[in-house]
Computed example of a mutant assay.
Amino acid sequence: MSRIHCERCLRPQAHCLCPLIPSLGSRTRVLLLQHPSEVRHALNTAKLAALGLRNAQLRVGEVFEDLPELLEAPGYRSALLFPGDEALPLEAYADGQDDRPWQLVVPDGTWRKASKLLHLNPLLGGLPRVTLAQVLPSRYRLRKAPQPGALSTLEAVVQALNVLEAPQGFDALLKPFEALIEGQIAAMGRETYERNHLR
């Protein structure tokens, strides 16, 4: 007999995260493009970002046929939030600059899958690329980062919004993420966690 799942956060009903998910407004729009392999991932952080931000949209797929319309969001200027040599560091919104807020386009998947999304959707490569000038350490204690400074999708979105919209903060988005991680640590047992993840 399968467990009943929450239709909103997709977690088993007994572990529903909805009470921890905020409903935050933001000047910045966030467009999350999720690789299908991430949808059923236990730590679906793009889903948490979309649920916690009122100005966010989550799309799942490999090829996004309506990408031109998505990128032409009226009142916004689109940029790809993804590291790279040509990526410019994000800065707080300032008076006198282009007063249109960003639409941050965020590919969600492993590095390989996110890179595949960029390859399969060439329009993404034509966007200005932005990144975080300073990356705070990841709170994702259950995985080995593929490279220094690697973040989950949710953490990258939170850090980007904290920079762009300072002094407004978006750390409340991390509460369900941290609860998920604590729940997984509890399920595996603290001793197993310490043996396998604290080296």
Rank of each mutant, 00 (worst) to 15 (best):
residue 82 F to D: 03
residue 69 E to F: 05
residue 107 P to E: 12
residue 125 G to I: 03
residue 117 L to P: 00
residue 54 R to N: 07
residue 193 Y to C: 09
residue 80 L to C: 07
residue 149 G to C: 10
residue 87 A to Q: 01
residue 44 N to T: 03
residue 99 D to M: 12
residue 46 A to I: 01
residue 103 Q to S: 14
residue 113 K to W: 14
residue 76 Y to I: 06
residue 64 F to C: 05
residue 104 L to K: 14
residue 191 E to I: 04
residue 111 W to N: 15
residue 183 G to Q: 05
residue 179 A to P: 00
residue 135 V to G: 12
residue 86 E to H: 09
residue 87 A to Y: 02
residue 66 D to Q: 07
residue 13 Q to T: 12
residue 127 L to P: 07
residue 118 L to V: 01
residue 98 D to V: 08
residue 42 A to V: 09
residue 105 V to P: 00
residue 1 M to I: 10
residue 72 E to A: 14
residue 79 A to V: 08
residue 167 P to E: 11
residue 60 V to E: 02
residue 4 I to R: 13
residue 168 Q to Y: 15
residue 44 N to L: 02
residue 81 L to Q: 06
residue 26 S to G: 00
residue 16 C to I: 06
residue 156 A to Q: 04
residue 19 P to I: 03
residue 9 C to T: 04
residue 15 H to Q: 14
residue 199 R to G: 12
residue 36 P to I: 10
residue 71 L to K: 02
residue 93 Y to T: 08
residue 101 P to Q: 11
residue 162 N to L: 09
residue 16 C to S: 12
residue 177 F to D: 00
residue 65 E to S: 09
residue 115 S to M: 13
residue 17 L to G: 01
residue 28 T to M: 09
residue 150 A to V: 02
residue 98 D to P: 00
residue 189 G to H: 07
residue 157 V to G: 00
residue 138 S to D: 10
residue 150 A to H: 13
residue 184 Q to P: 12
residue 106 V to G: 14
residue 80 L to H: 06
residue 5 H to N: 13
residue 181 I to M: 08
residue 4 I to F: 14
residue 120 L to I: 02
residue 151 L to Y: 13
residue 72 E to M: 06
residue 32 L to A: 13
residue 188 M to T: 03
residue 27 R to F: 02
residue 189 G to N: 07
residue 130 V to W: 13
residue 60 V to A: 04
residue 104 L to R: 13
residue 122 P to E: 00
residue 94 A to V: 14
